[in-house]
């Protein structure tokens, strides 16, 4: 899922100070699960803004609300009319949600209340870890469920490198060596010989360096009049 983190309050206050009617809109999917942008966090942010405005004697009409997903028009439609009553939407969705909102409601100011951090999973309660870079050319079949693009600090396709020591990467003592993890996994599976397989240079053309990526599926597209 998409993992995010609340923006510093000072930044939120500065960006919203000039607006008199604010709607703080949470997103109840990924960022709610990572406790950064769901309904609870929307209410919390709204209370914080209200408190700040009272302190600075700058009255505000503020409402906290949330929808299931800000990254799909169908869900935005449900609250469209209500949103138009406000001067600005402080979206607690990820960057995808904020931009979908901005596209769907072009006449309104949409500001982000979160920093979108990465694609990851909850390692334990309160700890989230990145484990996918969305590179567009998955190699997990060759690395047996551990992504070298994400878990190896150098995104090496064949490893480990000389910077790996006792399972730890030279980059930081808190960073596990991705290739040591792959080795350990293969050892546990009794397939260490797979480590000998050389992975050819990766196709990076599908990655994020050439503008926004797009997937078109003609089989599911709806053609006008259909």
């Amino acid at each position: 899922m998409i993992i995010g983190e609340r923006k510093p309050l000072e930044e939120v206050f500065n960006r919203t100070d000039s607006f008199k009617k604010i709607c703080v809109l949470g997103c109840e999917t990924c960022v709610a699960v990572c406790l950064a942008g769901g309904d609870k966090e929307a209410q919390e942010t709204a209370e914080a803004i209200k408190m700040h405005r009272e302190q600075t004697n700058n009255p505000v009409e503020i409402k906290a609300s949330s929808i299931q997903r800000q990254c799909e028009y169908e869900f935005i439609d449900e609250v469209m009319e209500e949103l138009k009553e406000y001067d600005v939407i402080l979206s607690l969705a990820c960057g995808v949600g904020v931009q979908t909102m901005a596209t769907k409601v072009p006449e309104m100011f949409i500001l982000p209340g979160l920093n979108t951090s990465f694609l990851g999973y909850p390692l334990e309660q309160g700890v989230w870890m990145e484990n996918c870079k969305a590179c567009g050319d998955c190699v997990l079949d060759r690395t047996y469920g551990i992504c070298p693009v994400t878990r190896c600090s150098k995104s090496m396709m064949n490893g480990p490198c000389g910077g790996s020591s006792e399972g730890i990467c030279e980059v930081s003592k808190d960073t596990e060596c991705g290739w040591a993890l792959i080795y350990d996994r293969l050892k546990a599976l009794g397939k260490l010989e797979y480590m000998d397989e050389i992975i050819p240079p990766k196709n990076w053309s599908t990655s994020f360096h050439g503008g926004p990526r797009k997937i078109v599926r003609e089989d599911v597209k709806i053609v006008r009049g259909e």
Binding site: K40, Q43, E44, E47, A48, K50, M51, E54
Partner: peptide, 11 residues
């Protein structure tokens, strides 16, 4: 207890 309860008390 949620964070918002504390902030609401202040507000």
């Amino acid at each position: 207890l949620e964070h918002v309860h504390i902030l609401r008390a202040f507000n």
